[in-house]
């Protein structure tokens, strides 16, 4: 292969992409979410899912859970970039610890009558989804689980009259007695 004339044209190395779940503890101050998101968009990182909420109000700490994809080098770089932001307390790669639990909540609205309705209820029971709203022609199911399980449930509901989905995105926590 010909050597490129400038560093501009050196090709990127294509290591396979990995998906990682990062937990970021941040000071709950105005603009902090914009800073984190701006880092991702500015540097061209991916966001598959992002959830944020204040978790320790007395310490003004919010917890951001981000699911991202990238080569191992990019993932490391993302963690370093997050860690050097002033309002960021800690960054933990939940995927690397190998001991994390990930959950997501979805609310799924279906419309239909007759056979479809019965089938939907049967599947919901198998997935341990709860009915949280019902009319004679509709249901809203609440389901929690990991992303894969929710995707699977939604795929099954699609032919049964799926109308609308609302998902929280992934929240993660480590197993065992230790906190982060």
């Amino acid at each position: 292969m010909e050597q490129p004339a400038s560093a501009y044209f050196m090709e990127e190395r294509h290591d396979p992409n990995e998906t990682h779940t990062l937990t970021v503890l941040v000071a709950n101050e105005p603009g902090v979410l914009a800073r984190v998101i701006g880092l991702f968009s500015g540097r061209g990182y991916n966001i598959e899912s992002l959830t944020v909420s204040e978790t320790e109000s007395h310490k003004h700490v919010s917890r951001i859970t981000i699911v991202t994809t990238g080569t191992p080098m990019v993932i490391t770089q993302i963690k370093h970039q997050l860690d050097r932001m002033i309002p960021v307390h800690r960054v933990v790669d939940m995927t690397l610890t190998g001991r994390s639990i990930e959950r997501e909540l979805a609310m799924v609205k279906l419309r239909g009558t007759g056979e479809h309705r019965v089938e939907a209820l049967r599947l919901a029971e198998a997935f341990r989804a709860r009915v949280i709203d019902a009319t004679i022609e509709s249901f809203v199911f609440e389901i929690t689980g990991n992303t894969g399980k929710i995707n699977q449930f939604i795929d099954l509901m699609r032919p049964l009259g799926l109308v609308e989905i609302s998902r929280t995105g992934v929240a993660a926590i480590s197993r065992g007695p230790e906190g982060m």
Binding site: Y8, G38, S41, R43, G44, Y45
Partner: peptide, 19 residues
């Protein structure tokens, strides 16, 4: 803008223009 594969790498004359 710097080439796509350099975006986010603090390349020469790079800035987050869209940001």
């Amino acid at each position: 803008q710097v080439p796509t594969h350099l975006i986010g790498n603090d390349a020469f004359q790079e800035c987050d223009t869209v940001g």
